[in-house]
Write a protein that binds this DNA or RNA. Structure first.
Lengths: 196, 196
DNA sequence: AGAGTAACCGAACGATCGGTCGGGACAAGG
DNA sequence: CCTTGTCCCGACCGATCGTTCGGTTACTCT
């Protein structure tokens, strides 16, 4: 077999190191020197595994986007009453975000300085649009309040979900993934106020 | 009088240009050359008005933090039932965020690479903590649901509010500041689900 | 053992980084 | 008129940027 020279980097293992550093320092704030220190190999050796800094970014955001768009392919997101499909998508968004935390974190922070970043922003907008349509359908079916505009509500709900990457850390000390997921679903659909 | 040689930069007018570019390209992604092009003066001339790049960042985040902490000094944030004080603070947070949009945007994006950025992060945490205490008091008084942990709920509500900087643009085409403010208050306290 | 190659390295590339320097243009005050 | 100080400039600094290159090590396969 051709695989598994042990103790050596693959594009994937190198990516996981790079994404961690990108998230700590920001993509623009990270130099190839920073990556080489974190990976424990020389700067030039990185280029043996990947074409450059931007390819690492492209691989990372692709992985995050695949996870998010995958939700929309699942059965519970495609069939049933719109409000229930929406709740399912919200719950799964939190799950995917937590499962692929570093990659989604990086995706949510791209600014648009390079072609890769602009492509990522476009895909993100497309995903947002798909979920907005779901919320619109739920409003049309009368299951969602009508005194807040659909586009506005979508953005605010996305804001709440996406903000998780700013504070969630998967050590045992804070909230568990399940607690976070359930809290988001409760707050998005029920709000802070005590329910009857 | 000593003021007002017209058509010339002051530290404040230069700051407004710099903050705009910082928000477009990210702080680390912005060079002094970028700033000089945007301001229409040479790179070295910028140093006649400010000490350097980091001072521009410090001035910007200070302005944002002053606005946010000012909310907590207001009367409606200090006296009354906790749930009502919380609702007032949430509404005022949206208002301040929209009034000082570019400065708050920059504040919410600092990563911690320099001493200035780490100081800004610490002040932000302090503000978050103050609001979390308010939510805790509202829960103790029985006006807020008890099945979502206070720390978790605070973070999610902050996430929703802070995410506004990612999409709100004060041109006439989208939602008005009042619409955004009311939508946030409705969603935070009532949720998406149709109210009785 | 010898060939082939994946993994790695130090040194250096041109470009750009944030910041400095000496001096020129210009208006205000005498 | 001349001085003074504000405002601005081009040229340049050492350091660092992402990337390239020639060459060495070390493992796999025959």
């Amino acid at each position: 077999m051709t695989t598994a020279r042990r103790d050596t980097y693959t594009p994937e293992t190198l990516l996981s190191v790079a994404v961690r550093v990108f998230n700590e320092r920001g993509y623009d704030g990270t130099s190839m020197e920073h990556l080489s220190k974190a990976a424990g190999i020389s700067k030039s050796s990185i280029y043996h595994h990947v074409a450059g800094k931007e390819e690492l970014l492209r691989r990372a955001v692709t992985r995050a986007l695949d996870g998010l768009f995958g939700i929309l392919e699942e059965e519970h997101a495609r069939v049933g009453r719109a409000a229930e499909r929406l709740e399912y998508v919200v719950r799964r968004m939190v799950e995917v975000l937590l499962a692929e935390l570093p990659y989604v974190t990086l995706l949510l922070r791209v600014r648009g300085n390079t072609a890769t970043e602009r492509w990522a922003l476009e895909r993100r907008r497309e995903f947002d649009h798909r979920v907005a349509e779901l919320l619109k359908a739920a409003a049309a079916e009368g299951d969602v309040r009508g005194d807040v505009e659909v586009r506005l509500a979508t953005r605010l709900v996305f804001g709440m979900i996406n903000s998780i990457v700013e504070w969630y850390r998967p050590d045992g000390r804070g909230s568990s993934a399940r607690e976070v997921r359930d809290a988001v679903v409760r707050l998005v659909f029920g709000g802070l106020r005590k329910e009857a």
